[in-house]
Amino acid sequence: MRKKYWTLFLSTLTISTFTFGGGYVIISLLKKKFADELGWIEEKEMLNLAAIAQSSPGAVAVNASILVGYKVAGLAGALISILGTILPPFVIISVISLCYTAFRDNVIVAAVLRGMQSGVAAVIADVTVNLCGTVYKETRALGILVMLAAFSASWFFSVNVLWIILACALFGVGRTWVLHRKGEMA
């Protein structure tokens, strides 16, 4: 158990240190680490946890790590992964706030970050390709259709994420209801 706590702490710590660019980057990395590499969480469950993280108040990255920690090792796990997630930005910002103009205007820092943007985009692209396969295997064309609709709403029409989540949740509830009705009739 102690080894598990330690792995959980180190994993969330390293992931958080490299999470530039918001909640979905950390979700991609958590999925790679905990689903693909360690096998502690199923891919489908990872998406469920991401959905809960997105629909709760607060930062998506913090919420997602709480859920992952809770899944892996209960309440103690949740506390450990919060610590792992919070520590890197806390330390980095504390240091930078002392000399932030020098940091902000540094040419090399800007170039490194610019390079990392390409890397982050590639990681997300890789995770997206894998997840599209999962969605297709689970719900076939319907899932892909929901995905395309949600994507267009977010990308082309800048619809607030919460509305997208709400609409898809209602769609899921409605579909279950219809399936139940069908089951009762048969």
Partner: peptide, 12 residues
Amino acid sequence: LKGLRPAIVALI
């Protein structure tokens, strides 16, 4: 959750 999963992939 089944309805939400494709949405999460889209948001990612």
